[in-house]
Nucleic acid binder design. Structure first.
Lengths: 227, 227
DNA sequence: CGTTCGTTAGTTGTGTACATTTAATCGACC
DNA sequence: GGTCGATTAAATGTACACAACTAACGAACG
């Protein structure tokens, strides 16, 4: 809320997403308070807020831990993102101004350069910025808030598995293709590419899906299949 | 977290969803603390947690208020729910046990009776239970958590506009039809009905959509249109 | 030797006092 | 008479002290 609590939230979020705290690691209030030079009160506030963002799990009388997502959870997250961000891309195709699209293209181009240079930290940062920018273009705070949480969870993945070269190129191309679809004011196209983009990311990060898995949404249920 | 804080959260949630606090109404910490017989600390905790659930807005140094959703936000919420709960219904068609489906049918039947008798409070409660039960059948805590927030926002609507008789009958029939689709193990069918169910609820609650609205997802982008 | 119960250290939950910020009211000046 | 500014009251943010709970260690008994 106030500057102290805000700073604690920002710092902890950065550290968790940066991998300085491993999934499942305990986050003691007193330890954090000493380390950050504040009292327990703003630390408690910050942990509650991060719990709201889905980054930590809090159990009564047992404290806070960094969240651990199951493989199935992560599959569902990308499934949902594919649909919701697909809708956002469709909306952006009609709502975005030329300047908005320029801005998005700028991010996508920078993303390609950093990707080819192998600067992964920049890639992760710009990728998050690209998606959040696009979701905002849908003009819906609900979309931004809903997907924001899911994106955080997705980012926690990055320590698990890195994209191979082919997947990285696919991802870069998707970002650029979506910009093209927006310029063409083609909502169908934009939604379809975004859908594919997130399902391909899921495949790259999680590997082949187990067919006998309790399927939440089949790969075959893609919304847009005009042809 | 502890019993006191939990009780405050439950009570405030009930009061907010029950309409005892109007959207936009201020929630003072001291006032609530006195009224509930606890100190400010658990009240603050509770307000932070309700903020996480999307029921209150907290601004630094300015306190907590009951959330106010814009009409556009609510349209987006139902749009997202249509997709995500549609996916959940599809997954449930393969994952649900016969006992699960029986339980769901029991809820749907009770819902029909209460609806015909005009007991709206029971209708709202059972409707929330039906959706949350079905989403849980998808076996994904992510779906449950994501949609849970959106459902809360939807419930806040109920003071705005009541279903007319035709809409109420449609809603009841949808719930029963989804049960039938689950029994048939037909994921496509279940998803399609759920999608229609939520878009029809949106229409009933929000009235006709303004065509020139910055469209986030067109009515025409329904995923399942086999015929 | 294993199990169980009690004690103890550490952690989280709660209450309260103090600091800081916000907003409104009153007064003075233009 | 109106507007700008300062003072004051009330709210939230922070810190610290105490209470309650958890879990781990150790001892005693079977």
């Amino acid at each position: 809320m106030t500057a102290a609590s805000d700073r604690v939230v920002d710092r902890l979020r950065e550290q968790i997403l940066g991998g300085e705290y491993a999934p499942g690691e305990r986050l003691g209030e007193v330890e954090l308070a000493e380390k950050l030079g504040v009292s327990r009160t703003p630390v408690r506030d910050a942990l509650r807020r991060l719990s709201a963002e889905g980054l930590v799990d809090i159990t009564t009388n047992k404290g806070a831990r960094v969240v651990e997502y199951l493989r199935a959870d992560l599959e569902h997250i990308f499934q949902i993102r594919a649909h919701v961000e697909g809708l956002a891309a469709r909306a952006a195709a009609t709502a975005a101004s030329a300047a908005d699209i320029d801005r998005l293209e700028h991010i996508a181009t920078a993303l390609r350069e950093h990707s080819e240079a192998g600067r992964l930290n920049e890639v992760y940062r710009l990728n998050a910025e690209y998606h959040s920018t696009l979701n905002n273009l849908a003009g819906s705070s609900v979309v931004t808030a809903t997907v924001g949480q899911l994106i955080h969870a997705s980012v926690l993945l990055r320590t698990l598995h890195a994209f191979d070269d082919a997947a990285r190129r696919r991802s870069v191309n998707h970002h650029l293709e979506i910009v093209a679809a927006l310029r063409a004011r083609d909502g169908d196209w934009a939604e379809a590419v975004m859908h594919a983009h997130l399902l391909s990311a899921r495949a790259s990060l999680l590997g082949p899906r187990r067919v006998q898995a309790p399927a939440y949404g089949d790969p075959a249920d893609t919304p847009e299949e005009p042809e």
